[in-house]
Design a binder for these strands. Structure first.
Lengths: 246, 246
DNA sequence: CGGCAGATTGACCCTCATCAATCAAGGTGG
DNA sequence: CCACCTTGATTGATGAGGGTCAATCTGCCG
């Protein structure tokens, strides 16, 4: 249940009852890969895996590296909707449509497995396990986005950053990496875009966390020094008031 | 393409290429209802259709009335994630999990059709059209939530309110109601919760829109007086600066 | 070595949250 | 039928959080 415990907290402590979260690290993904037997594809840093409006014809399982997905509006606004790493599936937004509804960009040199969806769609009918897995993936995506909505709708900047770092730490940990020390693969601006903040704010708050002894930052390198305290940042809005009143 | 044009704008102008949006008003929903032949159920204003953590066993097609879905966090935070009306499907978040992941509450006396999901799940295997429809619904939900994320992450309060009103107008219009005159079924606080604003801000901005001649408000009654101008509110952040500079 | 993208930090200001008072509309019980 | 209470909405005053603009710094790559 390593995986489960890692996906329970999706960017912030959503009530966890029945929260399946994004399926990762083998298990479900393997079902897809084995059945459909997709082909490998390399994507270099900065390159698109797929773009908005491109015809939807495949899902992608991340083998190595990491990606961001980006949403664009007519009026030129752009927002990062997620960062994705090894074991996660990209392209789900194309299901039920004929085109991808956003961009997927590699944050570093990466490798994916392409799972042609024409095949999958047909297979799913004859293969209940596969069908279930697809439903699960979609539902997981919905969960992930709800968590982000909650973050964007109800948290202050400090809380957002804390939630972001904790989430990243957990996902990396579930993949066998250190939970306390890792490299950010994205810029401050991209983090800000995901969290609904400006890059200066991201930078400032990381500095503040460091000054408070919660983390150590050096450019893209993050070390979480006081995990418990970092967790405590989330929800300290009112707690702080009570403290000040006392 | 009435329906399509109505769902193209999901709370704000997402780039529309391939945007299927939430399926509504018959079509897909009818497929579900006909195949599974669910039972009617009445829900009175303020009552729960389902609650967080309850075992997931059915989807619900809204026949009449309207609902809000609400998400809860461990630390007591709560956020409205959507308002739903006639023709839409509730309970999708339960797919791929064993429990509902939030609450659904009736905003007025309403009626739904319960579609037992055990049946559906089995049926989907033998019935490609049904399977496709389920995928479509899930994908539509993802689209809807992305739109909201974009709103929460990149819009100012005025823009959020404008987008909210336009979205509501379009959905009502697609159902045969007036696009210019309608009744809000939710409180200012609930609107604020959806949009990541406080109720006072919602109230103030509605008043401002009225003063500017964009709308007419009287409690829950809304009349959109200048639709084009209301649309123009979205994205006028920088436009305003230019105007002031001139 | 120079150039550039990304990060940090400061100063200022604007939007929106907060606190608070008032008002309108129902609903209820006498 | 009216006084009372509750719930939701409006409006004002004030301040904090975070956006904006700008200068500086760092590391990296050609």
């Amino acid at each position: 249940m390593q995986v489960h415990s890692a996906t329970v907290t999706q960017l912030q402590p959503v009530n966890t009852v029945g929260n399946t979260g994004t399926r990762t690290v083998g298990s479900g993904l393997e079902i897809l890969l084995n059945r459909a037997g997709g082909t490998r594809r390399r994507v270099r840093r900065g390159e698109y895996l797929y773009r908005l409006g491109a015809p939807f014809n495949a899902l992608y399982g991340i083998r190595a590296g990491s990606f961001k997905s980006v949403l664009l509006t007519e009026d030129g606004r752009e927002q990062v909707t997620g960062f994705h790493m090894c074991g996660e599936v990209l392209g789900l937004d194309g299901i039920g449509s004929e085109h991808y509804t956003g961009d997927a960009v590699a944050l570093e040199d990466s490798e994916v497995i392409e799972i042609p969806f024409g095949d999958l769609d047909a297979l799913a009918c004859h293969e209940p396990a596969l069908q279930r897995e697809l439903f699960r993936l979609l539902a997981g995506e919905i969960q992930r986005e709800r968590a982000l909505m909650l973050l964007l709708g109800s948290m202050r900047a400090e809380e957002r950053l804390a939630a972001f770092l904790i989430n990243l730490s957990q996902r990396l940990c579930a993949r066998g990496f250190s939970a306390h020390r890792f490299l950010l693969r994205m810029t401050r601006e991209e983090i800000g875009s995901l969290l609904g903040l400006k890059l200066e704010t991201v930078s400032r708050i990381l500095s503040r966390f460091q000054a408070e002894g919660l983390i150590a930052v050096q450019n893209r390198e993050i070390e979480i020094v006081a995990m418990a305290a970092l967790r405590a940042v989330i929800g300290r809005t009112e707690a702080r008031r009570e403290r000040e009143a006392a």
